[in-house]
Nucleic acid binder design. Structure first.
Lengths: 213, 213
DNA sequence: CGATAGGTTGACGGTTCTCAAGGGAGGTGG
DNA sequence: CCACCTCCCTTGAGAACCGTCAACCTATCG
């Protein structure tokens, strides 16, 4: 990527935040303009049905991009909500797409980002047990945080149990019980939202059927 | 799109088929080269775990594109298998990506295709009942077939019950029972793989919690 | 210090899975 | 043309996992 190109990219970036817990990055139905990279904090994406019940689609950590599922319909198909204090970089998608025609590497990067999203969404679709899905959830968080330089063994859950439960297709009570059992079995230590992974190997083994590696 | 561009696109197309039931379009781990549009028949994408059990990711009907989830890893992350007699158009992805830098509309089209895939994968992730998921499955097939000019009320299931069950996170026995109950309730008429939708409205209402519209 | 949201725990019940057996449909070979 | 074989589908009985309901507990914060 040459210098003038990098400069072009720079002027497209819009730094946003800090957002407070509960603030919306975008709402379902909003006209699509920008994609956003999480710089700090956690963003939850979710759908709200007519009768008010929520479906959590994902949790997005620093380094991850949201909004790519809005390109097709030209409106955001879900809500994106800050779970804690969130910092973002926003990019005008029309502008970045135009720029991508001049920068094959940028185009390739965008294709890859979207391709990865297709795959990651299908991770939890399998018919696995509550234990396996929970193990996969914890291992996935651990790995993604590690990739950004955070500790893979000790981190905070930035979301309430109800959101975890919803994401994993479980009742909040089940989440609570599974976590407590993991603790009794010496896999983790958990105090409210503080997670410490004790036996990474065993947890990864449990997660394997969901994550595949 | 101008004429010379269309010509460029044309030379990239590789017509493949007919494939017989059970033949592979690609296998997990194969190096990624091409994306493929289904022209006729149904393609199943699925993952095979180490201990041999399958996870069905999707069924792909005429007009739908497969292989987009392979861009990121440069290998196909799943198997793609013909369920009946299948005809395909294959496109060299590197070539089409290069061409897309010259054709903004083509680039936009690719972005949209991938964006749509991200959304459609997350359709069945919700924690809905066996009945709702089955209704959504039938309505989804109906609509996608209608979009290609086939009858929305009368069509063939091209896959065995085990594949439907796997896709919907159910036991094959549950699929059978739910379909039989739908029939008793006057929603559909089903004889093995022949499906006739009797009460489209009621079926769509059931599917609404999954499909959202 | 009280209020509120979030988390835990127990008892119970239901949806769905598992196991087991039986019944076609379609293909192949005699 | 029929017999047999192999999938595939269906049906029933029982069990298990997990959801629901209810109550209680615990942080956190104004």
């Amino acid at each position: 990527m040459d210098k003038s190109a990098l400069k072009d990219l720079h002027v497209l970036i819009d730094h946003v935040g800090p957002l407070r817990p509960g603030e919306y990055v975008f709402r379902e139905g909003d006209p699509f303009n920008v994609i956003a990279a999480v710089r700090a904090g956690t963003v939850k994406t979710s759908l709200l049905s007519r009768d008010g019940d929520e479906q959590v689609l994902g949790f997005h950590l620093p380094g991850e991009v949201i909004g790519l599922n809005a390109i097709d319909g030209e409106r955001y198909p879900c809500d994106a909500i800050a779970l804690d204090t969130v910092m973002l970089c926003q990019f005008s998608f029309p502008q970045i797409a135009t720029l991508a025609t001049r920068l094959p590497n940028l185009q390739k990067h965008l294709f890859k980002l979207m391709s990865r999203d297709i795959g990651s969404v299908s991770l939890y679709t399998g018919n696995r047990s509550a234990d396996e899905r929970m193990a996969a959830f914890l291992i996935s968080l651990s790995r993604r945080l590690a990739a950004r330089g955070f500790s893979p063994r000790h981190f905070q859950l930035t979301m309430p149990r109800t959101d975890i439960a919803n994401y994993l297709r479980q009742a909040p009570e089940t989440v609570s019980r599974v976590l407590r059992r993991f603790e009794r079995d010496g896999l983790v230590r958990i105090k409210l939202r503080d997670v410490e992974i004790i036996d990474m190997d065993r947890l990864e083994t449990m997660a394997l059927t969901v994550l595949r590696y």
